[in-house]
């Protein structure tokens, strides 16, 4: 495993991963994988959206996208499913990096269609990027749970690929900070997408924010989480599809372009300051939650 170097290799992680998987093997030939995905999609679309009413005007919506992601994971983990193995998962991961493009293209078309609206909402779109700094508020909780320097890596950002690269670049591969961001990365990979779709469904029912605010917030800087967050938002505001897609897409683009610089120049220094200030006050005995580097 190579460590990203100083001269701005941060954004290339996606590319290298995709190339490695896609250019070497013939990923399209893996009919087991694509056949399984087709079956999952057919099952999901046939079941369709399920609405569970909780109270008057409040309902939890479970959408086909939840079924496919959970069934995909179950198929990989289930013992009887012998045709989906590590090899298929690696191809799926590489293919996914390419398919992000289709998703981005669809969102971009909506953005282009509503370009004047995007300029009107410019201030909100730009300032909400700073809202992502709210992750630092989790730092005290991490300290109370017994994390030490790991907490800096854990709470400076949402901990996706670009953020991992930034932290590893700054603190070194074997540092506690990097262990922290790796932990968030792995857990986010496994539960993040499912969690955010429930979080959004729940928030749409109970928290009265502007529909555009929900749309903008779904651009959290991870394509799969973005996708999972837009789903319920679209369903909740029928008639606003184009605007919601436009804002979600543009906000994701902003997260991608400026988000990384906010992390480097604002979030990380701020997290460190908070840590130095709070750790002597509320730090606990260190726990060693993860095994040492192998």
């Amino acid at each position: 495993m190579k460590i990203p170097n100083k001269d701005g290799q941060v954004e290339h992680i996606y590319r290298e991963k995709t190339d490695k998987r896609i250019l070497k093997k013939n990923p399209w030939r893996d009919y087991k994988l694509h056949g399984t995905v087709l079956v999952l999609v057919i099952i999901a679309e046939i079941i369709g959206t399920i609405k569970i009413p909780l109270a008057k005007d409040v309902a939890i919506t479970i959408m086909p996208l939840i079924y496919t992601i959970i069934l995909g994971l179950v198929f990989y983990l289930a013992k009887p499913v012998t045709w989906i193995q590590r090899k298929q998962a690696r191809i799926a991961e590489g293919a996914m990096m390419l398919f992000i493009g289709v998703l981005i293209a669809k969102l971009a078309v909506s953005s282009g269609q509503s370009i004047s609206l995007i300029f009107q909402m410019g201030p909100a779109l730009i300032l909400q990027e700073l809202g992502h700094l709210a992750t630092i508020l989790v730092l005290p909780i991490a300290l109370l749970l017994g994390f030490k320097k790991e907490s800096i890596g854990m709470t400076n950002s949402i901990g996706r690929e670009p953020n991992v690269a930034v932290v590893v670049d700054k603190y070194g591969f074997n540092s506690p900070e990097s262990r922290g961001v790796f932990a968030i990365f792995i857990i986010g990979t496994v539960i993040g997408t499912i969690f955010i779709s429930f979080l959004v469904t729940f928030s749409l029912s109970f928290i009265p924010l502007h529909p555009y605010a929900f749309a903008m917030a779904s651009g959290v800087g991870s394509a799969s989480m973005n996708a999972a967050a837009i789903g319920p938002t679209l369903a909740a505001f029928p008639g606003l599809e184009t605007q919601i897609e436009a804002f979600a897409g543009f906000s994701n683009l902003l997260s991608f372009c400026v988000g990384i610089y906010i992390v480097i120049f604002v979030a990380l220094p701020l997290t460190e300051k908070m840590y130095n200030w709070l750790e002597p006050k509320i730090g606990r005995d260190p726990i060693v939650p993860e095994k040492e580097d192998e």
């Binding site: 994988l33 399984t36 995905v37 999952l40 999609v41 999901a44 679309e45 959408m63 086909p64 996208l65 496919t68 992601i69 959970i70 069934l71 995909g72 994971l73 198929f75 990989y76 983990l77 989906i84 298929q88 998962a89 690696r90 799926a92 991961e93 293919a95 996914m96 398919f99 992000i100 289709v102 998703l103 990979t189 496994v190 997408t193 799969s224 996708a227 999972a228 837009i230 789903g231």
Partner: peptide, 13 residues
């Protein structure tokens, strides 16, 4: 998104 997340689900395993 539904198709994309099927690949994500298998990949994250």
């Amino acid at each position: 998104v539904t198709v994309f997340l099927a690949y994500v689900g298998i990949g994250m395993g």
